[in-house]
Amino acid sequence: MMADTRLRPDRASELAAQQERPWQAVVWDDPVNLMSYVSFVFRRHFGITRERADELMMRVHTAGSAVVAEGGREAMELHVEAMHGYGLWATVRQEGDA
């Protein structure tokens, strides 16, 4: 007896939709790093303007976290690894996941 390995149509569409959602690098607020340092890290690593870096840093500070990049999973994992190298708390998640 062979197992049926075909996906149900509803499950197949659910998996396809999940695979289409981009991945995100999320930086979390911490009690250690200065806000100016976090902004510096964003400018240096992502090559963004001071204004954009400060906006992201304030989101981290006030909301507790901020999405700092979106894209493929491997690229986001590299960004998170870089954030860890700078001493920031960061994780990877798929868009829409809390």
Rank of each mutant, 00 (worst) to 15 (best):
Y86S: 04
E20Q: 15
A66E: 02
R43I: 07
A90D: 07
L15Q: 14
T5G: 00
W28C: 08
D4V: 13
R50D: 04
L78G: 03
R11Q: 14
A98H: 07
E55L: 11
E55C: 00
R11L: 13
Q24K: 03
A82R: 09
L56I: 11
L78W: 10
E77L: 12
D97E: 15
D97P: 01
R6A: 14
S39T: 14
L88W: 03
V60K: 03
V67L: 07
A75G: 09
E77Q: 15
G71A: 09
F46I: 06
L7S: 05
E20G: 04
A82W: 00
S65D: 06
V92G: 05
P31H: 09
L34C: 00
G87S: 08
T91H: 09
H45W: 09
F46G: 02
E20S: 15
Q24G: 07
L15M: 13
D54V: 09
V67E: 06
R43G: 06
P31F: 10
G72W: 09
Q19Y: 13
A75L: 15
V80G: 11
E70W: 01
D54Q: 14
H79R: 12
E95L: 13
M1N: 11
A25Y: 01
M58G: 05
L78C: 03
G47K: 06
G85V: 07
E14L: 14
M57P: 01
V68P: 02
S65E: 12
L56T: 06
M2D: 14
S36L: 02
F42K: 00
L15R: 14
M1S: 15
V67T: 15
G85N: 06
A69D: 09
V60M: 04
M57H: 02
A12Y: 07
V26R: 04
A75K: 15
L88Y: 04
T49R: 05
A98L: 11
R8Y: 07
E95F: 12
G47A: 05
V67W: 03
D4N: 15
D97H: 11
H45G: 04
R43S: 01
E77I: 04
Y37K: 01
R11K: 13
A90Q: 04
S65W: 05
R11G: 00
D30Q: 07
G87Q: 04
V41T: 08
R6M: 07
G96V: 05
V38G: 00
T91R: 11
A25K: 05
S65C: 06
V92S: 02
G87N: 04
Y37W: 01
V67Y: 01
T49V: 05
E74C: 05
S13D: 13
V41G: 05
M58P: 00
A16N: 12
H45A: 11
R43H: 01
M83V: 08
S36K: 11
F40L: 09
A66T: 01
R93E: 08
V80E: 11
R8N: 08
H61Y: 10
L56F: 07
R50L: 08
E51T: 10
G72I: 08
E74N: 15
G47R: 01
